[in-house]
Write a protein that binds this DNA or RNA. Structure first.
Lengths: 191, 191, 191, 191
DNA sequence: GATGAATGAGCGTTCATTCAT
DNA sequence: CATGAATGAACGCTCATTCAT
């Protein structure tokens, strides 16, 4: 097993366990076991549990951004850009429920708050493209003239909620429904 | 101290500690201390910690329903009813951050999932009035013809997100902003 | 078992294990076992291992001072006072090897250094009576005019060494030998 | 790097870390790092940590003996020989605090006891010259007629104590004080 | 021979729960 | 009824030692 393999196995096991059972339900010993490594091995790759979790989040971001932004062009009309990005986001969540559940756990934990604060203030990471889109939308008067955080809430709130409902089995994956949901989000945001 | 007082103190202390420090930051011994009772006493009123937390949620629901539904009449137009309920809900969250933060913790934990499942299937609790409203809205063709869960997501998703942003200090309380936010939610839902 | 009994058992077990096997050889679980209590119980009485050890030292001091100073009078001649105190000290160490070995471990650890520093500077605790004696001795020109730390070294150095030799079985307890040893210490210190 | 160099680097690093941070503060991995070798390499030269430490002690002895005995002649008068050796010993400790601190750690640990036992019984190592001196002193009736261990205690007890006080910063290096201290030791031992 | 990644037993500590008082 | 001292399983983490490369 190559060096990278072990690290990846640890990250994968952590994602799985945290997504399924929460931070509580993912003790280091269990993560190690699921990763097929010794308990101490995790600490060769991650200073402590917090670092492992934060790093896991970072990798998730890195992995998901390209997928979500694939085929996106900032030159198209606002509406089209919005539908493109949000549909991709929702699809990603539905198709990667582990990623989504971890993300939720993370963002609803002390870890996550600092991240969200940074993102809003420093405008970096994934939000960049969304922020740009929303700022464009507002300045071109195609979106409501509301603070960015509110627009984010109007767009992402429903998406996250729907993704959660999928994972819980309340809805089945359905491309038409996804499209209609995102269009409804657009209705909430557009002027 | 009357029997009921002790129980109430325990529930109050649990709410406070869980809201502020999460489930981790609220050991039974600390809850007991904050409640001014012995550690063992909690177990006279609640079988175990899970039951305490679940019960706490139930009481929160009970306490908040009347507040949210105050002045609500099912005879008014759909739009008005929607704005009324959702505004009340958002206001309640903003004005009772402890309740909201506990709720978030709860719904984002294994505890919460079973509850949400029950609610959707059995149609009881707070959702009744919302469910009625949304079913009315759909059947009168004033709301989009989407599954109930999607409509819920379009309404509550942004509200929860905005409430969170308030608590994190990203937005200040502002009646006009609240009103505009809820109207935006309506735009997302209405036909 | 009364509340105090448990605490005492823990202290006793800690003393025994640390004296015999050093700080390393006295894990909390083993101390608990030897004390006949659960592992967690220790933490009801002592915040952590450091506190347990420091407290153990404090109790040792408290217990030994009266024994060592029994029959001591600051009104007698310097020489007699010196012989009295030092003989009592050496006897105490020989008769309480556990106490002595713990003391050695303690004073040769990070814990101990702070204590010794305090004692030298603040002049409190057992050293008070020794310090007084030595200061008297110097000012009355019956002891050599050397810094206090040096006089302490000349008196306690051999005593500790002899006590250690007893415990290691290099010498057998022998009142005459004890007396002659302490007199030799006096020869080193007296003018 | 020659084979011997590696070994020496390991021993040096171990001395440094143990002297400064105790046995606890000197994990094998850190010793390896400070020595500039791989962690496993240590085990090519020393069977395990205990052996490394014991060996380190042995080398320390070997290194210090010639320094302490430099200029020493068994033909000079007892008193002069005593002052010579003991002054050299104290100076060595003061000037080589790392060596002294390791020595203390060592002698106050399970490792040390066996060594001291061996020394007294087998009469080898550094003690030879001291033992010879003391046996001479006793037989020539210039020293008190006390068991060897007691005479050792009277001589080395204060020296070790004073060395410790230097390292802890309680006394500053001072040739006159050193001389007077050693003379006081002599007073304790001489007839 | 030299390495350093991997190991897992063992550490100090926490906390939900019990039960004698 | 109420208590809070007692428990011990489980946690996150360290480190002496091994062994494939």
């Amino acid at each position: 097993m190559a060096k990278t393999d072990k690290r990846d196995e640890i990250v994968r096991a952590a994602l799985e366990l945290i997504a399924e059972h929460g931070f509580h339900g993912a003790p280091m010993a269990l993560i190690a076991e699921h990763a097929g490594v010794g308990a101490g091995t995790i600490y060769r790759y991650f200073e402590n549990k917090d670092v492992l979790i934060t790093e896991l989040y970072r990798e998730l971001e890195e992995r998901s951004f390209p997928i979500i932004q694939k085929g996106y062009s900032p030159d198209k009309p606002i509406r089209e850009r919005f539908l493109h990005l949000c549909t991709a986001l929702l699809r990603y969540f539905i198709d990667n429920p582990l990623d989504f559940r971890f993300l939720e756990q993370f963002l609803n934990s002390p870890y996550g708050v600092a991240f969200r604060r940074d993102k809003l203030l420093e405008a970096r990471g994934e939000c960049d493209v969304f922020r740009e889109l929303f700022e464009d939308g507002v300045s071109r008067q195609e979106m409501k003239d509301l603070p960015l955080v509110i627009l984010f809430a109007l767009a992402f709130g429903p998406i996250l909620a729907v993704a959660r409902d999928h994972i819980l089995g309340f809805i089945m994956r359905d491309e038409v429904l996804i499209a209609r949901t995102i269009e409804a989000c657009w209705d909430g945001i557009r002027r």
